[in-house]
Design a protein around this nucleic acid. Structure first.
Lengths: 228, 228
DNA sequence: GACCGCCGTCAAGATCCGATCAAGACGAAC
DNA sequence: GTTCGTCTTGATCGGATCTTGACGGCGGTC
């Protein structure tokens, strides 16, 4: 069953969208606020999202950015504004498509099909929790746990550990990590990595510390116990 | 280098598109007819396609359909018509996006970035492993194994063995190896090679040691058992 | 057989790199 | 403006790695 989340604060539009999608055979869940949408998206990720930018409680672009930190679910943005700048920002922050109101239902449906077509051929697993051995990273909640016990990390520590956990067992070069966590322009600051690796190890405890190993001259690696 | 194919029969638009894309750092190839576009797409597939529907010789939708039979390259369609039916058909026949002329260059660029972003995350899990006989070098994991048993190598040892394994059975001259591992300026330090060849042999064990042979006065070679 | 060039091995000093601690700088929240 | 947490930077220690030199073996040449 293909599920689509529709987010819009105008009941009339919400009804129209829902009816059109159901008529095409999709399962539809709805949310009227950004907060409600994020709540849904942290627990059960649909196959696609139709998101109106103009919500009462938050900016739709912020929702895109937030969701993109833990899921690649296709997001089709609706907006009343035809502002070029807004389009570019939304697309760069994670939206897959941008439709200007008033829109035609058949076009929206076609664009939904495009989004689903892509998803079908791509990844199927979309668990917003990264795991590696006893380590668990809940991306939407920004929560880390090792062996069931919560671990408090600062933003940079979180970003670095997440980058490593996305590729268990693989060596990430110093450059790659610095790019991922600090952005471009920090390519030579390998000292940062040492400091943060040390702090992460300390917070993971004696057992977890052994999972984060350095590959001298290359980078860092998170040992994947399932590969040993 | 990211390559984008632009297909349009109006020279003015073609020029505009090409200039805008090149300014953003993309490599651009162009085609003015559907036939020319298909010719290019059968030989070398670009990273994305920008396709004007209104070509002289063929219907753009037919091009979409044809390309989709052998490639999933992202296609962004441009069209002068704002016909809803045409949009739906194009999207259903394989187009990933549909932009109506007149369009804004920043928006087009943003949509190109969306298309490329997807391509980037789709091709993540390939594991290029170099092999030569019982020797395996997993480059992303930075792991070396001989006959299934892991081998711990220092950075220079790893670099030297990798260089040799990239060309199984072939002789790499002293100069080549020194350049590859130590960089320029070490052309005469052949003694380094002797030291490291010795250490690598020691770590590969008695069987593996025999694979690394020296060609007196020339360089070193990794024996490829599949060629003997 | 002695010499010579080249290779292989070993080991010791020098050097580099990573880990850790701690202090200063910065920024956000109140 | 102050306070707190986080980020940046510096100093130091220990260890792995690299470099360098010495020595012996092997095969050719004279």
């Amino acid at each position: 069953m293909t599920t689509i989340l529709v987010v819009d604060d105008e009941p009339a539009i919400l009804r129209t969208l829902k009816a059109g999608l159901i008529a095409r055979g999709y399962e539809v869940t709805t949310a009227a606020t950004g907060r409600a949408a994020l709540n849904i998206l942290t627990s059960q990720i649909p196959d696609a999202v139709v998101l109106d930018l103009g919500l009462g409680d938050m900016d739709g672009v912020d929702i895109c950015r937030a969701v993109r930190s833990w899921s690649e679910v296709p997001i089709i943005v609706l907006s009343a504004e035809d502002s070029e700048h807004r389009k570019v920002v939304a697309l760069d922050e994670g939206a897959d498509d941008y439709i200007t109101k008033p829109f035609s239902m058949p076009e929206l449906l076609a664009r939904v099909r495009v989004a689903l077509r892509r998803r079908g051929s791509a990844t199927t697993d979309d668990d917003p929790v990264l795991r590696c051995g006893q380590l668990e990273i809940d991306l939407p909640h920004h929560a880390v746990a090792f062996a069931g016990a919560p671990v408090e990390l600062t933003p940079k520590e979180f970003a670095m550990l997440t980058a490593l956990t996305r590729h268990p067992g693989r060596v990430l070069t110093h450059r790659t990590l610095l790019h991922e966590v600090w952005g471009p322009g920090y390519d030579t600051e390998t000292h940062y990595l040492r400091v943060y690796a040390s702090q992460i190890r300390k917070k993971l405890g004696p057992v977890g510390a052994q999972m984060l190993v350095s590959e001298p001259g290359i980078g860092y690696r998170l040992i994947d116990p399932s590969e040993e």
